[in-house]
Amino acid sequence: MEGKVETVTVKNKTKKSGILKSKMYTMLIALVVIWAIFTVTTGGNFLSTRNLSNLLRQMSTTGILAIGMVFVIILGEIDLSVGSMLGLLGGIAAILNVWFNMGAVPTIIITLILGLVLGFWNGFWVAYKKVPSFIVTLAGMLVFRGILIGISKGNTIAPLSESMKVVGQSYFPNVVGYVIAVVTIVISIYLINNSRKKKLKYGLEVAPMRNDIIKVALIGVGVTAVVAILNDYSGFPLPVFIMGIFAIVFSYMASSTVFGRRIYAIGGNKEAAKLSGINVNKQMLMIYAFNGLLAAIAGILLTSRLNAGSVSAGTNAELDAIASCVIGGASLAGGTGSVAGALVGALVMATIDNGMSMLNTQPFWQYIVKGLILLLAVWVDIRSKDKK
Rank of each mutant, 00 (worst) to 15 (best):
L114F: 06
I109D: 07
I109A: 07
T111R: 03
L118K: 01
F120Q: 12
F120N: 04
W125I: 10
T111Y: 01
I109E: 08
N122M: 10
G119W: 00
Y128N: 12
P132E: 12
Y128E: 12
L138T: 09
V136W: 00
T111P: 04
S133E: 10
P106M: 11
V136P: 00
S133V: 11
K129V: 15
L118Y: 00
F124T: 10
G115C: 06
Y128Q: 10
T111F: 02
L116S: 03
G103R: 12
L116V: 14
I110F: 06
F134I: 15
V131F: 04
Y128M: 11
F134S: 08
T137I: 11
P106N: 11
F134W: 11
S133L: 10
S133D: 10
F124E: 06
A104W: 04
T137Q: 03
F124H: 09
V136Y: 00
V117L: 14
F134V: 13
I113G: 03
L114W: 04
M102L: 15
P132R: 10
W121V: 14
L114I: 14
T137L: 07
G115Q: 03
T107Y: 01
A127D: 06
W125G: 01
I110W: 02
V117Y: 01
M102K: 08
L138A: 05
M102Y: 06
G123R: 01
S133M: 09
G115N: 03
L138R: 08
F120Y: 11
G115R: 00
K130G: 08
L112F: 06
F134K: 10
A104P: 08
S133H: 06
A104V: 14
F134M: 11
T107D: 06
L116H: 03
I135E: 11
A104M: 14
I113H: 07
P132Q: 12
K129P: 10
L138Y: 03
K129S: 15
M102I: 15
I113Y: 05
T137R: 01
V105F: 12
F124G: 00
F124M: 13
I109F: 09
L112A: 07
L118C: 05
N101Q: 15
V117S: 07
N101I: 15
L112R: 02
I110A: 07
